[in-house]
Nucleic acid binder design. Structure first.
Length: 271
DNA sequence: CCGGACGCCTGTCGGC
DNA sequence: TGCCGACAGGCGTCCG
């Protein structure tokens, strides 16, 4: 579920509660996520102060002096700050208890998320090493995007969802960005002109930063660290709006499957 | 190298 | 009411 705006919202939400706090205990109720939570992780984290909360793409990074916890929310994950003694609900797989009497609680019904540990530079971890540019960073623009798409014959929607091209763009924001750029999602990625790439890079930055400002998109499960939803869903132009009028021209929004994922677009506005 | 399909999981919803 | 298929914010892996 969570794309860059939801992960960044989570990062900002938890940071004030965990920064400088010491981990007093880690409770793993269900270690079987996408990959098993390493058995050593609880011992590695225990006693460590959390020095920084970072994000790379859709990965959250809890930095300590001894190493870094790498956390991914998968499709259905969320992190909340709770009182440490609040009874866990189903699918509350991990509690990272802090010396404040609260806990960082990982909830993930589908268990596509991950919680891993590295003693080394997390950016050198095999899951992060090959990631493309951060769309909200300074090294992402139309020229970078154009270069990343050049050799790709796949649909542009699939290309911008490929984390080697640019990180953080998932199924919702891919549809939304292509609508704003007036580009049909099936267009051949490598055939986009440089100006089209400039426009696309611009709207990717725009839609992601607007969504961050709204606390992300809540359609089903996503909640912020305080349990509240994000409010960007009301600003979606096409995603999950099949049959409803295009905000630009009024013709019904189309739903089609591209790469086994639902895509939403306007056949009149997007070419 | 690339593109495309497939799992991994659980929950929910719509149709019959 | 119950059952069954489709579908859901991701992504590594496998195959041609």
């Amino acid at each position: 579920m969570p794309e860059l705006p939801e992960v960044e919202t989570t990062r900002r939400g938890i940071a004030p509660h965990v920064l400088g706090r010491r981990v007093v205990e880690v409770i793993v109720r269900q270690p079987r996520l996408r990959w098993p939570i390493p058995e050593s992780l609880a011992g590695d984290l225990k006693g460590q102060p959390i020095e920084d909360v970072g994000r790379r793409g859709k990965y959250l990074l809890l930095h300590t002096g001894k190493g870094t916890a790498i956390l991914h929310l998968g499709m259905s994950g969320s992190l909340r700050i709770v009182d440490a003694d609040l009874a866990p609900r189903p699918h509350d797989h991990v509690d990272i208890r802090l010396d404040s009497g609260r806990a960082l609680r990982l909830h993930d019904p589908r268990r596509f998320g991950a919680l891993l540990w590295t003693r080394d530079d997390p950016l050198a971890h095999e899951l992060l090493r090959e990631l493309g540019p951060e769309p909200l960073g300074e090294d992402f623009d139309g020229d970078v995007l154009h270069a990343g798409l050049r050799a790709r014959r796949c649909a542009i929607k699939l290309a911008i969802m490929d984390s080697h091209v640019v990180v953080g763009v998932g199924n919702i924001y891919a549809s939304e960005a292509l609508f704003r750029a007036r580009i049909h999602p099936r267009r051949c990625a490598g055939a986009l002109s440089r100006p089209a790439c400039r426009r696309l890079a611009e709207v990717i930055r725009e839609v992601l930063s607007e969504a961050v400002a709204q606390g992300g998109t809540t359609l089903r499960d996503f909640v912020k660290e305080d349990g509240e939803p994000g409010y960007f869903a009301q600003h979606l132009n096409v995603y999950d709006r099949a049959g409803l009028p295009c905000p630009a021209c009024g013709k019904p929004v189309t739903r089609a499957v591209i790469g086994q994922r639902s895509s939403f677009y306007c056949t009149h506005c997007q070419r």
